[in-house]
Amino acid sequence: MAGKQITYGLYNDETDMMAAVKHANSKHLEIMDVFSPFPVHGLDPLLGLSESRLHIAGFVYGLLGTLTAFLGMTWIFTKDWPIVFGGKPYWSVPAFIPITFELTVLFAAVGMTFTFYILCGLGPGVTNKVLDDRITDDKFCIAFDETEVGRGEAESFFNSTGATEVHSKVL
C-alpha cells in the first residue's frame, strides 16, 4: 500500500494547537488528524469526532460473560453433574452471582482490550510508524493529507498559526 504524503506542523502548546484547529475549521481545511501527548479537553467536538462505540462492544461482551457464567453453571449443577453443597438446592442462584459477576467483568475487560488493540492496529510485534517522536513527548501536531490540502497551503497555514516546525513525510 502506497503511503500518504503528509504535511504536518508541530506546536509547543495545546492552546496554540487548539486555536489553529479552529482556524483550519473556519477556512475549511480538511485536517487529517491531530496528535498530542495527552488528551486535550474540547478537541473532539472541534474535530467533529463522534463518540467511541467501544463501550457498546463492552456491553455485548459483558452480557456474553453474564450468560456464559450463569447458563454454564445452571447446566453443570442441574444437568451435567448435580452435587448437593451444604444442603442447598442444585440451582442455587445466590451462589452463582459472584462468579457471574466475575465473568461479566472478565469478558467485558478482555473483550474491550482486544477490540481496542485490533481497531488501533496495536499488538505484540507490531511497529507503528509515527510522524514525529516528539508527539508522544512535548509537541502537539496537526497533520494534513497532501491530496486534501496542498503543501503550499498547509505551510502558509502553519506559519500563520504559530507552528514551530513544519515537515513533510510519506507514511
Binding site: 451444604g86 444442603g87 445466590p94 451462589a95 452471582i97 459472584p98
Partner: peptide, 12 residues
C-alpha cells in the same frame, strides 16, 4: 445488599 444476604444464606 447482596454480600450481606449471601453470607447469611450460605452459612444458614
Amino acid at each position: 445488599w447482596f454480600s450481606q444476604y449471601m453470607l447469611i444464606w450460605y452459612a444458614n
